[in-house]
Computed example of a mutant assay.
Amino acid sequence: MKVYLSGEIHTDWRVQIIKGCDAKNLNVTFISANTDHEASDAAGDCLGEESTAFWRDHKSAKVNAIRIHHAIKTCDLAVIRFGDKYKQWNAAFDAGFCAALNKPYITLHDESLTHPLKEVDASAQAWAISPEQVVEIIAYSINP
């Protein structure tokens, strides 16, 4: 199974899921957007300098989209994490892209975000509140 890990980059939830799947000897390959914030912001810098932040961000978003669109289109499942410290608009976009492509996804967030993410959760196949729950869903999906 190929799993795309999307969203919040400030905690180790990705590592927890990867280690949890490894501990269960699950045949899973993980892919992700660039989780190095500064490198992601600079993805479009190879196209030339910009005088405004808008155009730098615009170019970098487009370059990052190459990787992200490929990852979502080729994954079997996406896990989309929403943290409480920052707004992950990119994660909401990824969830919408998954829904549009009919790709199954799991949202991962705490209960405080249930109301603001109600539409995102409504299209998800599951809502988890911990990486351990995500591991259990992946395990079940591979070995029912």
Rank of each mutant, 00 (worst) to 15 (best):
A99C: 09
A95N: 01
P104L: 02
C98W: 01
Q125G: 15
H109M: 06
G96Q: 05
T107A: 11
S112H: 11
A99R: 08
P116D: 09
H115P: 02
I106P: 00
C98F: 01
L101I: 02
Q125F: 11
L101Y: 09
A99I: 02
L113E: 03
L108N: 04
A100T: 11
Q125M: 15
S123C: 12
A126D: 13
H109C: 03
P104F: 05
A95L: 01
A95Q: 00
A124L: 07
S112Q: 14
P104A: 07
D121I: 02
S112C: 10
L101E: 13
H109Q: 10
L117F: 03
A124K: 00
A122P: 07
E111M: 07
T114N: 08
T107G: 08
D121F: 04
T107Y: 02
T107H: 04
D121E: 14
A95T: 01
E119T: 09
N102P: 08
E111Q: 15
P116H: 08
L108Q: 06
T114G: 04
A95S: 04
D110E: 15
A122M: 06
E111S: 14
C98A: 05
S123V: 05
P116W: 07
A124C: 10
C98H: 02
L108K: 05
S112W: 05
P104V: 04
A126I: 04
P104K: 11
T114F: 08
E119M: 11
D121L: 04
S123R: 07
P104T: 04
D110P: 12
L113C: 12
K118A: 05
A100E: 07
A122I: 03
I106H: 00
K118H: 10
K103T: 02
A122S: 14
C98L: 02
K118D: 08
H115F: 12
H115S: 10
D110H: 15
H115W: 13
A126Q: 14
P104N: 06
L117Y: 03
T114D: 12
A126N: 11
D110G: 15
A124R: 04
H109Y: 12
Y105H: 03
V120K: 00
A95R: 00
P116N: 11
L101S: 12
L117W: 00
E119V: 10
K118T: 02
L113K: 10
C98D: 02
H115Y: 13
I106C: 02
A95Y: 01
P104C: 05
F97T: 03
E119S: 08
P116K: 12
F97L: 09
V120M: 03
T114Q: 14
N102M: 10
A124H: 06
E111G: 10
F97Y: 14
V120I: 15
S123Y: 11
Q125T: 12
L113M: 13
H115D: 14
L101K: 11
A100W: 10
P116T: 08
L117P: 03
N102R: 15
E119H: 10
A99Y: 08
A100F: 04
T107S: 09
D121K: 06
L113Y: 05
S123T: 09
H115G: 05
Y105D: 04
S112E: 14
D121R: 08
S123Q: 11
L108G: 05
